[in-house]
Amino acid sequence: MSGFWVLVRRDLQLAVREGGAIGTALGFYLIVVALMPLGLGPDLNLLSRIAAGVLWIALLLAALLSLPRIFEADYEDGALEVMATADLPLELVAAAKSLAHWISTGIPLALMAPALGILLNLDIGSAPALIGTMVAGTPAISFLGAIGAALTLKARRGGLLLALLVLPLYVPTLIFGITAINAVALGSDGFWQSFAMLVALSMGATVLGPVAAAAAVRLQLQ
């Protein structure tokens, strides 16, 4: 298992060292959310009603931008090939890299969400629920996203293709994420039900994602 954590730490250090990546994702998140009122009008009632949806969709797009980072650099400089021949199974390599992506992208985006919620007139009391929901839901984004990142390593127009492949897979996370936040912010019931579904989706993704991503990487290393 120690090899797993070494890899997670290495990927995190790389992400921090080229800090631009995290900063870009956060900046992108901010600007997409800020554009929404400009497009929809400044009506605060409307904005608070759609805030959960806007925050989640913008988060998906911001995370999507950073997905290629999971495998791309290591594939191009040959590090992935070395990892594939090492003791650690490729499935765990993919899991470690997805986990590092979640820590370096999913968590910062989730922590930033309440601040952006203020822009959308989201009830400030729902901030803990917002962060909790996003922390619970974003693993699915990183782990399922790793599948797309692995599949498009050798593809032309990889970035656009990645969005087309991965966004439909995010629909369940999006739906349960939004209903959970709305349950708190708009005072309807069923928060724990949606929250449990989000956790289940994320746990399922941590199994499916690495298995499929490792299969895709292995096919391309042959």
């Binding site: 498009t152 593809a155 293709l161 492949l165």
Partner: peptide, 8 residues
Amino acid sequence: ALRSSIED
């Protein structure tokens, strides 16, 4: 789209 964007 995936099939058409990979050469091999």
